[in-house]
Amino acid sequence: MKFNNFMILEFPSKSSNEAFARSAVACFAAQMDPTLEELGDIRTAVSEAVTNCIVHAYPNELGIITVRCRILKDNILDIVVKDKGVGIADIEQAKRPMFTTGGSDRSGMGFTIMESFMTSFELSSEPGKGTTVHMRRRLQRRK
């Protein structure tokens, strides 16, 4: 069996880690020979997921964020972003474009962007336990 490459990151929910997390995932994805557009989409989706942990999951304290990436067969990048924060009571409502519980510095477009930039997107959450975002992006094979 072929051993698939993976990496796991763990860091506190400081906003300075937003840039670190999206750059680290982009660096890991670079071995899959992505196009600039694919790399941009991956960076954006990771930025959204990690920012949500920082802003919403741990609103009043620092908590741990875990990012796990795997390379699957058929050139698929599998990304899981996980927190142990407040959780989401109504998942359908949270995913709605422009829905936000944040202030005027939030746009409510995070999940909409993750959904449209990734090949697949799954959100699971339990109030009081935490939230997990599972995304996959299939990369074009370049001739």
Binding site: S47, E48, S104
Partner: peptide, 13 residues
């Protein structure tokens, strides 16, 4: 060089 949905909030404001 990069924006995420926070950039949308900047434009909307």
């Amino acid at each position: 060089t990069f924006v995420d949905s926070s950039g949308i909030a900047v434009v909307i404001n």
